[in-house]
Design a binder for these strands. Structure first.
Length: 186
DNA sequence: TAGGCCATCTGGTCCT
DNA sequence: AGGACCAGATGGCCTA
């Protein structure tokens, strides 16, 4: 199933304010993230997240179960973790925006983004190798050396990961196929 | 309703 | 010591 940009949706307020840790920093929009579509999705998410934060997540120890200084440290740590995840999500969004041929109304999931980016990079690498390996006589660069380097990298990666890599010519085809499958919503 | 995706909390570990 | 990083747990929202 695919993740799509969702309309903003109100979420019921927390039923138990007693369980809501105090001193929560409100979510703030990430600096310079995406277009209006991304911003809308973000607003929707953060609105939901605020409620989820109040009652969701792992069970917290009851009142008095933790010292105040410890609680304060935990809250600060939570805030830092939240900011860290926001930065990570900003990076994901930035990555989504530089992957071409993706429909604007469909937000790629994180795993889709990473997979598509990987294959996109491979297809670009294959293109560069093709252009620099003698098929374009006008370019007298280090084509063969570049290709040798690429092959060494592939062997090293394959050896370490136990994976069999496709030849460079196949990456573009693989990338195109993947884009198509994502667009079809498979 | 099940499954996918996500945000958040949390405690452990690593790093500076 | 304190912050960054990581992974597990939990619960909400959405779509098929």
């Amino acid at each position: 199933m695919k993740t799509k940009s969702r309309p903003p949706r109100r979420r019921a307020p927390p039923q138990d304010p007693e369980n809501t840790p105090g001193e929560r920093t409100p979510d703030r929009p990430p600096p310079g993230s995406g277009g209006p579509e991304a911003a809308k999705a973000l607003r929707s998410r953060t609105a939901r997240a605020q409620g989820a934060r109040a009652e969701g997540g792992r069970r917290r120890p009851g009142p008095g179960g933790r010292r105040e200084s410890s609680v304060q440290r935990r809250l600060e740590s939570n805030e830092r973790e939240r900011q860290r995840m926001h930065k990570l999500n900003n990076a994901f969004q930035a990555l989504r925006e530089v992957i071409p041929h993706v429909r604007a109304d469909k937000k790629l999931s994180k795993i889709e983004t990473l997979t598509l980016a990987k294959n996109y990079i491979k297809s670009l690498t294959a293109t560069i190798l093709t252009m620099s390996s003698g098929r374009f006589p006008g370019l007298d660069g280090p084509g063969p050396k570049l290709y040798q380097h690429y092959q060494q990298q592939q062997q090293a990666a394959g050896g370490a990961l136990g994976t069999a890599e496709a030849p460079p010519e196949g990456h573009l085809q693989k990338y195109s196929t993947q884009i198509h499958s994502f667009r079809e919503g498979s």
